[in-house]
Computed example of a mutant assay.
Amino acid sequence: MKTWFITGASRGFGTLFVKEALERGDNVVATARNARAIVDKFGDHPRLLAANLDVTDEAQARAAVEQAVKRFGRIDVVVNNAGFGVLGAIEETSAADVEAVYRTNVFGLLAVTRAVLPQLRRQRAGHVINISSIGGYRSAAGFGVYASTKFAVEGISEALADEVMPLGIHVTIVEPGYFRTDFLDGGSLTTTPSTIPDYADTPVGAVRRIAADLNHQQPGDPARLAKALLQVVDAEQPPLRMPFGSDTVAAIEQKNAFVAGELAQWRALAVSTDFPTSP
Rank of each mutant, 00 (worst) to 15 (best):
A50L: 05
I38C: 07
E66Y: 05
P46C: 12
L48T: 06
A37G: 11
A37H: 13
R47D: 07
Q60T: 07
D76L: 07
D26W: 00
A37C: 07
V29E: 00
D54G: 03
N34L: 09
D26C: 01
L49D: 07
A64E: 08
R71N: 09
V29S: 01
D76W: 00
R71P: 09
N52C: 10
A63E: 14
H45L: 12
E23W: 03
P46M: 12
T31E: 04
R47G: 05
V29D: 00
K70G: 09
L22R: 04
A68E: 05
I75D: 09
D26G: 03
N52E: 15
L22Y: 03
L53H: 01
R62E: 14
G43S: 03
E58H: 11
E23R: 07
I75P: 06
D40G: 09
A68T: 08
A68G: 15
R24N: 06
D57K: 00
A50S: 12
N34F: 07
K41M: 10
V79D: 08
A63F: 06
D40L: 09
F42H: 01
A59K: 08
A35Y: 10
V69G: 00
G43T: 00
N27F: 01
R33N: 14
H45S: 05
V28I: 12
D54S: 08
V28R: 00
R24A: 04
G73N: 07
R47K: 15
T56Q: 10
H45Q: 14
L48W: 01
V78K: 08
A61Y: 02
L48N: 08
Q67G: 06
A63M: 10
F42T: 03
E23H: 04
N27M: 04
N80I: 12
V29H: 00
V39P: 06
V65C: 07
I38Y: 04
A32T: 13
R36Y: 10
V55A: 04
A32R: 07
N52A: 15
N34G: 13
V79G: 06
D40W: 02
I38A: 07
R33K: 15
A59Q: 11
D76R: 00
I75G: 11
L22K: 03
R74A: 06
N80D: 14
L49V: 12
R33W: 13
G73M: 11
L22F: 04
F72T: 03
L22W: 03
V78W: 05
A51L: 12
V79R: 04
T31F: 05
D44A: 15
F72V: 06
A63T: 11
G73D: 08
R62K: 11
V78C: 11
D44S: 15
A35L: 11
N80Y: 14
V79H: 08
R74K: 15
A61N: 03
G25N: 04
P46K: 13
T31Q: 03
A50D: 03
F42M: 09
R71A: 13
